Structure formats: C-alpha cells, structure tokens
Amino acid sequence: MASSLEIKKELYVQCFDFVENRFNTIQNTINEIQESLTSETKSSAGDKHETGRAMLQLEREKAGSQLAEIQKTKESLSKIQISNTSEFIGLGSVVYTNKSNYFIAISAGELKVDNDVFYAISPHTPIGQLLMGKTVGNAVVFREQQFKIEKIF
C-alpha cells in the first residue's frame, strides 16, 4: 500500500497531466483556427467568406478564454505543496470520508491510485467549500447525504 505522500504525489501528477492535456488540446484548436484564418482566401461569395471569418474569430476568442481558464487552473495547482499536511482540510489535502475520497486541488474528475478512487475537486466547488477547514470526525451534508471525515493528509 502506498504511503500518504506517495498517494498525494500520484494524485498531483494525475491532476497535472489532466491540465497539460487540456492545455495542449486548446492550443491545437487555436493553431487550427489560426491556420484556417490565414489560409482562407477571398472567395467570390463575399458575404459567405466574411461569415466564415467571423465564426472563426468567435471560435478563437472562445478558445482564448478557455486557455486563460487553464492558466488559472495551472496556477492553482502550482500553489499545492505536496509535502504539507494539516489537521484541517485545505488546498492540497487528501480527504477520506465514509462515502468518497477527495483530493482538494482542481476539478479533474475521478482519479485512481492503487485500488482507491478519489475525486479531484476545486476548493471552490460546493462540496469543496463544505470540506474546507473541517477536520477528522467532522461531518458534512451534501445533496442530502452525510459524509463523515475519517482521514486527512
């Protein structure tokens, strides 16, 4: 069985990979849009051409804001000190409850370490806000289910 630090490191790496994959996908999308904008030449159907360019510009803006969001997510992730532990739940905490396990970091969905399932959640999500600052033995109620905090590291 992996140690607390090994589990936390593995969860961190999985979150980092999640962010990198999203970043690369969006970067590729932006590059493709840029190529489309550059390669599109003036056609005889002028209005259709302008509409196409406008749509590409909108797509580029959307991808740009997604990129900015990923940058913020990367910054949040970079603030986590893996070796830090606390008796109170905070950014970077691994939390075991009687229902589910959580890694308070970024919203990256379901992660697995060994045979354990963890949910990588942002401290800004509803469940994240409920858990922040709590300690072992505390209980939180989320969506009419009660969770008892069993372990934090």
Rank of each mutant, 00 (worst) to 15 (best):
P123D: 06
S3A: 02
T135I: 13
L131H: 08
Q81E: 15
V13R: 15
F142M: 05
T125E: 12
I30D: 00
R53Q: 10
T41Y: 03
F18W: 09
Q66E: 06
I33S: 02
H49E: 06
T97N: 07
E35S: 01
F88E: 01
I104W: 06
S65T: 14
D17W: 14
T29P: 03
E40D: 12
D116K: 12
E110S: 12
K48P: 02
I80K: 00
Q81I: 15
E50P: 10
R22W: 05
S93H: 04
S122G: 00
K9L: 12
K9A: 08
I152W: 11
N31V: 15
I26S: 05
N24M: 11
A63S: 09
E61N: 11
A108H: 03
P126G: 01
I104S: 07
V117S: 14
K9C: 00
P123C: 09
E32C: 09
E6T: 03
S36D: 08
S107K: 10
L130C: 00
I82F: 08
N28S: 13
C15N: 05
D17C: 10
L131D: 01
S83A: 12
S93E: 04
L58Q: 11
N98Q: 06
G92K: 07
V95N: 03
Y96T: 05
A68M: 08
F23V: 13
N21E: 07
S93A: 07
I149Q: 10
E6F: 13
Q57E: 15
E87K: 15
N21M: 11
A139Y: 15
K62M: 06
K151S: 05
L37E: 04
F18Q: 00
G128D: 14
G137L: 08
F88I: 11
Q66F: 09
F103Y: 06
I70M: 03
F88L: 12
S43F: 00
A45H: 12
G90L: 02
K62H: 11
A108K: 01
F23P: 12
Q34M: 13
E40M: 15
N84C: 14
S86Q: 12
Q146F: 07
D116H: 00
A68S: 01
G109K: 01
H124P: 02
G64Y: 03
A68G: 02
S78E: 05
D47N: 11
K72W: 06
I149A: 09
F153A: 05
L67Q: 00
E87F: 15
A63H: 07
